[in-house]
């Protein structure tokens, strides 16, 4: 719950933190899920990374569509919706990708 005015900007710090926590939550879920998917279908190399970026950008678009007009009430900039968590999510993605790739793809083992 933030309030935005033309000149005075009244922001609630705890609300911002909470919104970011939720964004993080979405990103982690998406990373883990897309990592599992990529591992199971056996994506390798660049395609795997491409898959991750497509997934997380898709999630950002879904969020933007979901918030609709009220977007500026919850996040200061649309850009932060797309970029702020994408790198931290990559770590999780790589882990799950590697894990399920190792578990499922017999050809390497």
């Amino acid at each position: 719950m933030m309030m935005k005015n033309d000149q005075l900007l009244a922001l609630s710090e705890s609300a911002i933190r909470y919104n970011h926590f939720l964004l993080d939550y979405c990103q982690t879920s998406i990373s883990a899920l897309s990592g599992c998917t990529a591992g199971i279908i056996g994506l390798t190399g660049l395609y795997g990374f491409l898959f991750y970026f497509i997934c997380s950008i898709l999630m950002s678009f879904v969020l933007v569509a979901f918030l609709g007009k009220n977007k500026s009430d919850y996040f200061l900039s649309t850009q932060s919706l797309f970029t702020s968590t994408i790198w931290s999510g990559l770590q999780t993605y790589l882990l799950f990708w590697t894990f399920l790739y190792g578990m499922c793809i017999d050809s390497i083992i």
């Binding site: 926590f21 993080d24 939550y25 990103q27 982690t28 879920s29 990373s31 883990a32 931290s88 999510g89 770590q91 999780t92 790589l94 882990l95 799950f96």
Partner: peptide, 10 residues
């Protein structure tokens, strides 16, 4: 150790 960090948050 590092990759599971955000999973704990979850």
């Amino acid at each position: 150790l590092f990759g599971l960090r955000s999973m704990y948050n979850l």
